[in-house]
Structures are given as structure tokens and as C-alpha cells.
Design a protein around this nucleic acid. Structure first.
Lengths: 220, 220
DNA sequence: GACATTAGTCGCGGTTTGTTACCTATTGCC
DNA sequence: GGCAATAGGTAACAAACCGCGACTAATGTC
């Protein structure tokens, strides 16, 4: 090893808030530190490696799967980080519901987290806001699902992200109009009730589809 | 608590992309380094001070005015920073069009910037995307204007942010429906044409105004 | 006064949307 | 098989919304 060079590891951590939809609620992947206390996965930022690249590798390492979608959140130096980092950059990732994580890690409902260090707690609680911020521009909801899904599952993913109930017929009509999904030949029988057709995310190019300005969201 | 630490330079900079609308285009405040080369205002992050707080102080220092709106962007370690920082956290701020900056600083159109260091260039070019991302949730367009403004000015601010032309009557109808502005008693005569009534940003509480899901934006 | 210019409004017609109702396919039970 | 229960999927209507062109209003210029 070389001489202790404090800058080598960087003064900042990359903290991963890996999200998944389980039982109708947003869950976050929590691992355990060497001491056994629960922590979000994190890594020291290394010079010469891109932050997002590092976050992707961290996600693959810790979940055994690449994240289906990833975005960075607001960097913060507030409160206490488990590693004592001066600065932390959160990355919010998304994965399908069937990913099985290695022992030592577990999915926790985002509103029932174990006792994380304050900074990580804040980052996890901000994850839903980040997802909401991006869901109109990126197919976040689709990335919470497997490659093939039913329309009811897709609607549930949207309801989870939006935090409100959607009307079935309206949802499907809007989806149809957007040419975002394509039906497959498969159908899935869930036990009771009529089997559901399976769809996949297959966006097709559309016209310049200008809609009105969204004043209605400003000011809560 | 932690022992009192010297306020040492962290390994990260806070870089300010201060935006303002001038002559129908988005402008960014650019200052000069000690050597005379153009740079975005930046500061080393100090332990014990919040990042956003530091960015607010930086804005006030460099423009003589507090930012009317501020949000953090995606932290990056890519490319070269003028101070050689390993990591940089951009903050995107917004100010009214009448702010006069001290000599040494100047407003530059965001698509005609002087030769900034690559990392700062990327951060400045990403500013409009950040503003667009937030404009549906926060009154970004209003913060590009003085406290009192005409509806035509407001429409121009929206057109600048959206990058497209809006229809006057539709814009005003949507604005009316959102109860976002209140008229003042003042009118402004701009020279030719009918005088315009002045308005101010005054959001009023509205019902749970749910609109449909925005599939139409996903996938470009 | 005629005209150009900018502000602000009205209303028609097509589109979108919330909602109710209905139809279809499957399971479980008698 | 017959039938209730359950869940997927569609049709159709009324109301709200939106793009758009046309209109009125106030001011300055010639």
C-alpha cells in the first residue's frame, strides 16, 4: 500500500436508495454494516470514476442485479452519515419486484425503515419525491415492474408513485393514446377472475404532442 | 458531538448557475477568476455548513441579491473543474431581469457562453433542464420576473422555459383556472399599444385538482 | 382620422376525461 | 352443469378542457 493519502478515497460517499414495489408499498434495500447496524449501501467516491457509474456498480454488487433505472438526488452535508462522510450524494435506483437480495440485506417499507443514520434516513425518505419528479419524463413506473406485466400491475405502480387511486378506464385510455405498451401473446391467470393479458414497455414515436401548461400543480 | 474541526476546504465545490431572463433568452451569470478567465461562481464546501445555505450566500455575494429560487442539480465528478475539485455540486438559481451585477461579472446567453472549464460548461448547459424539471412543481417562471409583472411577460417567461410558443387566450384561461395570480391596481404603458395590467404571484388554495396521468411526456 | 401595435376577451368545435354501465373469462361451490 | 364471485376489459355519455380564430380596447404615430 502507498502512504496514507486522505484524498484517495474522496471526502464524499455515494449512497444508494434502491427502490422496489412490494405488496403495494415502496420498499428500500437496507444492508448491515460490519457492526451489524442497518445502513443504506454506500461507497466512497473515487477520483477518476464517474459518480453514476459507481452507483450502478454499487447497485449490481449489492442486489446482484443492475438497477433498471437510476437518478441522482440532491447532495447533502446535513446531519450524520454512518461513515462520517462530510458530503453524500444519493442515487435513487429502481428494480423489479422479483429481485431476491443476498442474505444480510432486506427490503423495508420506506415508511417503516429501521434505525438508519439520520442522513441516510433523510435520503431514503426523499426517494419517493425524486421518483415523482422524474416519472413524467422517464418510464419509472415501468421499471418497478418485470419486463412483462399486466395493465392492472402497471396501474398499481402508478398509484403507488402518485399516492392516489386512478380510474381503470381512464388510465387505460390514456395509456392507449400514448402508444407506450404493446400486448404480448401471453395471458396470466392469477387464480380467481378472468386472466389478464401481458404487456411490455414498447414506446412508439408520436407526434409533437403539445399540451397545455401545468399550472395546476404549482403551489401544492 | 464531533470535535470542533477546522473549517478546511472540502474536496467538493458548490458551483452556482445563476439564471435570468434577458431579451427573451436565458442568461447565466459568469464572473472572472483571479487570472481573468471566465468562471461560474463557486465556493469550496465547508464542513458544518449546509450546501444550500452556502449556495444562497454565494448568490448574494456575487449578485448583490438573494436568489429568488434555488435548487441543486446532479453532483458530478466528470471533466475538469477550474479549481481542480474532485467533486462539484451545481446549484441552479433564478433571479429577476432587473438585477444589476457588479463589474467583473456579466450575464451571458446560455447558448453563447464564454470559454468555461468543461465541467462548468456542462453544468450551465444543464441548467435549463433542471428548471424545466421543477417548473411544474415550483413557481420558477414567476421568479424570473419582478414581483409585479404583466401577463405577457409571464407568458414570455413560460415560453422561454418551455422552448415553444403558447397561445395567448389558452395561457390566460389556464392561469385563471389555477388561481395563481392576483391583479394589482397598477397599469403599465410600454409606449405603443394598450397599457397592460400588472399582476403579482398570489397562489390561492384550490381543491384537490387531480388531473390525469402524463403518459404523453414519457419517451421524449 | 387612419393606422399600427399591444392588451385582453369571447365563443365555436373538436378532444380529453371522469364515470357508469355492461360484457367477458375464469375459479370455486352446490 | 348451474351459479355466484371475482377480476379483466370496453362502450358510451356528459362535462370539462383546449386550440384557435376573431373580436374589442387602449394607446402612439403619421
Amino acid at each position: 500500500m502507498s502512504a496514507p493519502k486522505t484524498r484517495r478515497r474522496g471526502a464524499a460517499t455515494i449512497d444508494l436508495v434502491l427502490c422496489s414495489a412490494r405488496h403495494g408499498r415502496l420498499h428500500v434495500l437496507v444492508t448491515k454494516s460490519a457492526g451489524g447496524t442497518p445502513v443504506l449501501p454506500y461507497a466512497w467516491s473515487a477520483e477518476g470514476e464517474g459518480l453514476e457509474q459507481a452507483a450502478r456498480e454499487l447497485a449490481r454488487d449489492v442486489a446482484g442485479h443492475p438497477a433498471a433505472w437510476l437518478a441522482s438526488g440532491a447532495a447533502t452535508s446535513a446531519k450524520r452519515h454512518p461513515a462520517g462522510a462530510a458530503l453524500s450524494v444519493p442515487f435513487i435506483g429502481v428494480m423489479g419486484p422479483t429481485v431476491v437480495v443476498p442474505s444480510g440485506s432486506a427490503w423495508h417499507a420506506v415508511d417503516a425503515l429501521p434505525a438508519l443514520a439520520p442522513r441516510q434516513k433523510a435520503m431514503a425518505e426523499g426517494a419517493l419525491d425524486t421518483l415523482r419528479l422524474h416519472m413524467d419524463l422517464a418510464p419509472v413506473a415501468f421499471r418497478l415492474l418485470p419486463a412483462v406485466f399486466t395493465l392492472s400491475e402497471l396501474q398499481q405502480a402508478y398509484e403507488l408513485l402518485l399516492g392516489r387511486h386512478l380510474h381503470k378506464a381512464s388510465f387505460r385510455r390514456a395509456l392507449q393514446a400514448a402508444y407506450l405498451v404493446a400486448p404480448t401473446d401471453e395471458w396470466r391467470s392469477e387464480g380467481r377472475g378472468r386472466p389478464a393479458q401481458l404487456f411490455q414497455y414498447a414506446p412508439r414515436k408520436r407526434r409533437g404532442n403539445h399540451r397545455s401548461v401545468r399550472f395546476d400543480l404549482i403551489g401544492r
